[in-house]
């Protein structure tokens, strides 16, 4: 069997929780299949991070230009992959790696399968469970052949023991060149607040808040909880909140352990983005609001009364 590659996601030297779970999975998968793992990432890491995994052989820091988009610049990466005889690739979905993975898939003519929750080896090949219809269903598919790329959904569910054995890994670096046809004009990084797709707790608010100035209350509450803020689509359409905060069918899909929805009716298109939440709390002054049917805890009340009281209670702890 050919070797395996993992792309890890990190920010300011912190490896994302989902990438750690992925390393656990892939290093075990490699031990089972008697093969080796090569890890790729976009920041430098000291080798200690990987020493606990017996099957990991090398960490490669891919140095990228400020704008990675043009699919031709990955030639050095393809060369590296070729030398390492990699046949299977695993990552947790990000826009950056989706683009790279697409180029790898096309170049090697191997399938790229997206939004995967689970992978198993079966007699005929590999069986994959994928999340579909915005989390309303899953499908199981089979792929033939030993080579593929798998993009896990952020909520992929693989229970495996953690680190196994130890190894001394080699570090290396490859550099992708800037593509002159594509120029970065301005960057607007999201700063300060917690990024929505990764947040463990999310406080969402809808048109029930009535005016953008009322968001101070939502933000204070979220801050006290260490939560990210989200909104419904009409709220971002009205420019009350930035577009990247809108969750739902046409917005971000979230899967936090706790979602607190304030003044949101619970339209099916909104639910499509929050169905993956472990527990849902709904605060709405209309007892008939459809969201209550999809809530773990519901409070029928005026958000302008309830939210400040909850905040007070939190602060008093």
């Amino acid at each position: 069997m050919k070797n395996l590659a993992v792309f890890i996601d990190s920010k300011s030297g912190q490896v994302a929780e989902s990438s750690k779970r992925l390393l656990d999975f892939v290093s075990n998968w490699a031990l089972e299949h008697g093969t080796s793992v090569f890890v790729y990432g976009f920041e430098p890491f000291s080798s200690e991070l990987f020493n606990a995994y017996a099957s990991i052989k090398q960490y490669t820091h891919i140095k990228i230009p400020d704008l990675v988009n043009h699919n031709q610049v990955i030639a050095p990466l393809l060369e590296d992959i070729h030398q390492k005889e990699i046949g299977q690739f695993f990552y947790v979905k990000t826009l950056l790696v989706d683009t790279m993975a697409s180029s790898i898939a096309n170049s090697l003519q191997i399938p790229l399968i997206s939004n995967v929750l689970k992978v198993e080896k079966v007699a005929a090949g590999y069986q994959l469970t994928k999340s579909v219809f915005s989390g309303k269903a899953t499908i199981t598919t089979e792929i033939k052949g030993e080579s593929f790329l798998i993009a896990f959904s952020k909520s992929f569910s693989i229970d495996l023991p953690g680190h196994v054995g130890n190894s001394t890994i080699i570090q290396s670096e490859i550099t992708l060149e800037k593509d002159p046809q594509n120029i970065l004009i301005e960057n607007h990084p999201i700063t300060g607040s917690i990024p929505l797709p990764d947040a463990a707790i999310v406080v969402g608010a809808g048109r029930g808040l009535k005016d953008p100035s009322n968001w101070a209350m939502v933000e204070d509450f979220a801050k006290e909880l260490g939560a990210a803020t989200a909104c419904s689509k009409p709220v971002s359409d009205l420019n009350w909140r930035p577009h990247h905060e809108h969750v739902g069918q046409t917005g971000v899909k979230i899967a936090p352990k706790l979602y607190i929805a304030c003044g949101i009716s619970g339209a099916i298109q909104h639910l499509a983005g929050v169905n993956g939440s472990r527990k849902i709390v709904v605060i709405n002054n209309d007892p008939e609001a459809p969201f209550f049917k999809h809530a773990d805890y519901g409070i029928v009340g005026d958000v302008f009364d309830v939210l400040p009281r909850l905040l007070n209670k939190l602060k008093s702890h």
Binding site: Q127, T138, I139, T141, E142, N275, A295, Y297, I299
Partner: peptide, 19 residues
């Protein structure tokens, strides 16, 4: 490359507890 063999509908049971 890929063929579908089965599908499952996800129904998340919610507590629906009112406070």
């Amino acid at each position: 490359f890929e063929s579908q063999i089965s599908a499952q509908v996800i129904e998340t049971e919610r507590l629906q507890k009112m406070i």
